[in-house]
Amino acid sequence: MATPVLDKVEAESAASPYITVTMRIRRFNPEVSDASVWEDFQIEIDPKERVLDALHKIKWDVDGTLTFRRSCAHGICGSDAMRINGKNRLACKTLIKDINPEKPITVEAIKGLTVLKDLVVDMEPFFQAYRDVMPFLVTKGNEPTRERLQSAEDRERFDDTTKCILCAACTSSCPVFWNDGQYFGPAAIVNAHRFIFDSRDEAGEQRLEILNDKDGVWRCRTTFNCTDACPRGIEVTKAIQEVKRALITRRF
């Protein structure tokens, strides 16, 4: 007796997985106005789909002028960081069902960077800070003819910070970065950490001096916004504290 009932329930849910979701998107178009406005879109979507799918639905079927960045759409390239329901996340890693689809879902550009159009921001200051910490291997002497070997423990030391995908979710969630944008930002410090604690790298002192700057690690207020925002689960604040400790003890 129970089986037909079960089948009926399953059939019902299989009939229409779609629900109506209101996407409230902060639009900005410099060719129309210098002010940005919230615009609501009602779309039918499976709650198991992602926010990025909802944006695609809007762009492809409703309003082609909606502008946002995405490349791989699978949480690797770091193009589609945006502020969803007031929290920085990757649109391609956020499921509709996880962010309460009963209420309107707000989507806006990440804060602290100049908005170019809709959800697209000028990432140049972010990458400027990244370039400033020299995110590349620096060594002295002759180049070895084979790999630069490293023990598993030495590799483990900076493993966490190698996961960064430069999506800017952390930096644009940092209230110190919002202030005047001169702070290096968590992402740059994480990528400096990745090389400072690399046993093969020899420019640790140089990077530490760069981060000892007025706008370096000392402006961190340990609010943990960056750790909460990181879509890769990097312990960003911990990495910043480790750089501070290295600056004081000069041991790394």
Binding site: P30, D34, G112, T114, D122, P125, Q128, G181, Q182
Partner: peptide, 13 residues
């Protein structure tokens, strides 16, 4: 299109 809203200078530039 010819006369877009003024560009806000990005920080850290």
């Amino acid at each position: 299109v010819e006369n877009p809203a003024p560009y806000i200078e990005a920080p850290r530039k």
